[in-house]
């Protein structure tokens, strides 16, 4: 995946999201380099999560989008969501409740991965959850769940990372540790990151560019 430096990373060009009525919510132009983070801040309801849905390709039909999203020289807009290679983390960690912890991780491994069990065991060790393979996700603590969700996403070998208020449900202490872990992993894998948050500390920890949006105009 060696590309010219100027073209690697995640590029949003005139990416705009609209309501179905045609009302424009947001427009973003940005280039996020591998290993760096773009933080998008603004009050809730302004369309930040909708913007992420436009990037992942899972926009609800109540919204539309235009513009382009390029990831390491691939244009994503016409690519189905499952082929975009974007990892996303939500504030609820959204582990699948009918799978065990190990099955959740295995669900993220790409189809032709070899030594799947060993990979999952290794992944559990990486997040200090050795021996948790057959556990019920509902029996984990909030921090443990957050780590499993992060690892599941990393195992799918994404080329960019999207964070949708990913830390806001964690308590203060845990939040700082989780942030460090996520940004460390992103830097290690040289992933461009787009983070949506309303927390100033998140933005400072990311140490990257910040896009602030004004409150929506009253209609």
């Amino acid at each position: 995946m060696d590309k010219a430096a100027s073209q690697s990373g995640l590029t949003l060009s005139d990416l705009s999201v609209y309501r179905r009525s045609g009302e424009k919510l947001l427009q973003v132009n940005a280039h996020v380099l591998p290993g760096r983070t773009l933080t998008i801040m603004g009050p809730s309801g302004i369309g930040k999560s909708t913007l992420l849905a436009a990037i992942t390709g899972t926009l609800s039909p109540d919204f539309r989008c235009s513009g382009s999203v390029r990831l390491n020289d691939r244009e994503l807009m016409q690519v189905p969501p499952e082929k975009r290679r974007l990892g996303i983390l939500f504030q609820d960690h959204l582990l699948f409740p009918h799978f065990s912890v190990a099955q959740n991780l295995a669900f993220g491994l790409p189809p032709r991965t070899k030594h799947r069990r060993a990979r999952v065991e290794q992944a559990l060790e990486d997040i200090d959850l050795k021996g948790f393979a057959s556990r019920d996700p509902a029996s984990l603590s909030g921090g443990q769940r957050a780590r499993v969700a992060l690892m599941r996403m990393l195992l799918s070998e994404p080329e960019a990372l999207l964070l949708d208020e990913a830390f806001s449900r964690l308590d203060q202490d845990l939040r700082a540790r989780m942030r460090r872990l996520v940004f460390a992993k992103a830097e290690q894998a040289q992933l461009p990151v787009i983070m949506v948050t309303h927390d100033q500390e998140d933005a400072e920890a990311a140490a990257g560019d910040i896009l602030r949006f004004p409150p929506p105009l009253a209609t």
């Binding site: 499952e82 996303i88 993220g108 996403m153």
Partner: peptide, 12 residues
């Protein structure tokens, strides 16, 4: 629906 978003981001 976010479960579907997560799963499709995981390549499904």
């Amino acid at each position: 629906r976010r479960l579907a978003t997560v799963a499709s981001a995981l390549g499904h």
